[in-house]
Design a protein around this nucleic acid. Structure first.
Lengths: 400, 400
DNA sequence: CACTTTAGTTCACGACTCGGACTATGTATC
DNA sequence: GATACATAGTCCGAGTCGTGAACTAAAGTG
């Protein structure tokens, strides 16, 4: 019928507090029960009981005594690395990738298969992805990491486990979640590559300051197309039909040339890889980088021009969304040395802001999306441990 | 330190369920306890207890028996009109306004004072606003409506009860919330006019379909400036520094003329009232409307051109935010007959979307912001009745 | 070695919701 | 019109879970 939040019951209260405690342990890395109590507002007794459950569920482990100034030393609590793990997969235009991440977010397996997937059949690519996934799952099992699920990054729009649109792969509708899920025996979730890259950057990009983690920003991922991921309060913003964040099709040249999307003057049409390469008169991104390093003027002009157009799009993003930062990822991260000055100048020219938010450069590059995919799985476990434990009857909660 | 959600406790559980029940009653207008139980997932016993509290707090009233098909007839529950009321105030460039709204959202008092506030001192305008507020509060008292608080719509940026920036009024920082709050003895909240207009439109605009209320949309309010309100999942989106939604300063003409905000080629610079009036060679908005009605070509061209520019900005909004609808408000609602065709065409030209979201026209016009301000107050009571009751010891909860 | 300080546990208590039994009050059936 | 049935709402015992104070544990300090 309509939006209707769940009733608050005892089980929900416990689930919520379980998540609160686990989240605090995850956030700090290592804390005592007493500090968790102080930080969360729960009493020591409640925290003790909750921690007991988390330990017996295998999600948390005591990691030895921790020295304190005075008084009895605390016992440090940390996420149990072998408590739960996430499998991240990625289908992209020119590669397949897999990552296994443990509960703490550390990558424990990473594999990339480079191959152009544009001219191959869907079934062929899916079979390859399943192969990659099986190998990754095998590695996880060998390391004693129980996979809590999988998440696949796709270069297109995914709704309810189905790839609805993948322009650069020219795929029809594909029920990817079901086919992959059946093959590897895990629950599989699909998500747009640009959104996952943004999350990966937030969790693993190293931009977060301990006092003020980056939770409101826009991530620009320049792969073959130009994607955008909007993160609001730590969560991806998807819009009413899961189509939000399409930075590549923001208008930067009203009345400009027609774009493949059907619009006119889109950013992707003016500053996409095809356009930059053509203007710089080189064949590949590697060539472009070399040309820029060599000081080739045509290459530098092409990149700076793309930077200017990007700045126009970002100026609109800043006025509309007021993010705390912008992160340049993918190809834009590689080109940042020759691009960001033009982009910053263009942003400054098109907004009146005296102090625009920082323009950061991704440290993960093309790995951001797979890392984000794997992180999504373990973050979900941390955000709702009760749901995870209920789902797998192997893990038993409660005493005796 | 960082984001940290509250621990779930018994009191919070009850507060949450109280809100759930009251929200269900507000949403449906009139329901029985049994239906509330079925819809919320709570048991009949819990609902009974919660409703008893709400009734004794004066927020809900039994509104007589309701016929059912078979079995014992239900007793209908409805919001008590005299349970709590909200005072909405608005300071704008050329008027002050006040509205009192009862719990159900019905306006019970409405007063507008037209006067140009640009060339007057801040203190003078604030004194006038306090006068207007006092008169409104008096009317509420005379009608037996207890005011739960007040909300002031300001044409600028408001942070923590202080007007930080009000470009069209040329105001310095003003502690409006405190001065008005002290004068009328109510808690006062400040909010941007464009955001409140969006909320007013959502709650009272009549766009909501019962099966699918409008909860994700962008509202364009064309007053002297051009404002935008972004509503995501029923709530205003403010961004990291409360500056989100500034539709007026989205770039629609890269490299265009300098705007008062410091940027170049902003929508407001290209399609603001000043620009339209100048191009149409008329003095006031009323003149412009008459000219359009009379078929004056210069006026029609000016409006259509503004519509085209608006379409460019909205195309970017659609690709970035993917809203379920766009609502034209303020002056754009008045001009809609001569503007919306150009806007729709421009949106179509600049996006590839085969089916862009509907372009709706506001039914509230300039009243949207005050109505929204008053609505904010009562909505907050409905969203968290426990907090409201705890705040005023007069209302006693619990039996005996 | 007593005193202080901090960490963590135990347990009686209270605040909830749940769920079934019970009462109230109407319509359908014969 | 008496009986069966269906639905609304109340009552009360049971279960769950956080609280808070008392208690035990384990260090450092004078």
């Amino acid at each position: 019928m309509t939006v209707r939040s769940e009733p608050a019951q005892h089980a929900g209260m416990r689930a919520s507090n379980l998540a609160l405690v686990l989240g605090e342990i995850a956030r700090t890395g290592s804390v005592s029960r007493a500090r968790v109590a102080a930080h969360t507002g729960l009493t020591k007794s409640s925290v003790s009981a909750l921690v007991t459950d988390l330990i017996s569920a295998g999600l948390v482990a005591e990691s030895g005594p921790a020295s304190t100034e005075r008084g009895r030393p605390a016992t440090a609590l940390a996420l149990a690395p072998a408590g739960a793990a996430g499998l991240g997969l990625e289908i992209n235009v020119d590669y397949l990738a897999a990552v296994v991440t443990d509960l703490a977010g550390a990558p424990r397996y990473h594999h990339v298969v480079r191959r152009d997937n544009r001219d191959r059949g869907v079934d062929e690519v899916v079979a390859d992805l399943i192969d990659v996934a099986r190998t990754a799952a095998g590695s996880a099992a060998a390391q004693g990491l129980p996979l809590a699920g999988a998440c696949v990054a796709v270069p297109g729009l995914a709704v309810d486990g189905t790839v609805v649109r993948a322009p650069n792969l020219e795929w029809p509708r594909v029920d990817l979640a079901d086919s992959v899920g059946d093959a590897i025996g895990l629950e599989v979730v699909l998500e747009n590559e640009a959104n996952l890259a943004a999350l990966g950057e937030m969790w693993f990009g190293g931009h977060q300051d301990d006092s003020a983690p980056l939770r409101d920003f826009v991530h620009v991922s320049g792969e073959i197309g130009i994607g955008g991921g909007i993160v609001i309060d730590g969560e991806v913003f998807r819009g009413a039909h899961a189509g939000a964040g399409e930075l590549g099709h923001v208008v930067v040249a009203p009345g400009g040339p027609r774009c493949a999307c059907g619009g006119h003057g889109c950013l992707e049409r003016m500053a996409g890889q095809q356009e930059i390469l053509a203007r710089a008169q080189v064949a590949t991104m590697a060539d472009l980088t070399h040309a820029c390093e060599a000081g080739d003027q045509a290459a530098l002009d092409a990149v700076a021009d793309a930077g200017r157009h990007l700045g126009v799009a970002l100026a609109s993003v800043l006025t509309l969304l007021d993010p705390a930062a912008i992160v340049l990822g993918g190809a834009f991260a590689t080109l940042a040395p020759w691009l960001s000055a033009a982009t910053s100048a263009s942003i400054g020219h098109h907004t009146g802001a005296t102090e625009p938010p920082p323009l950061l450069v991704s440290g993960l590059g093309s790995d951001a999306a797979v890392r984000g995919a794997a992180g999504t799985v373990v973050r979900r476990v941390i955000a709702d441990p009760a749901a995870y434990l209920a789902q797998r009857p192997a893990g038993r909660v409660g005493p005796s």
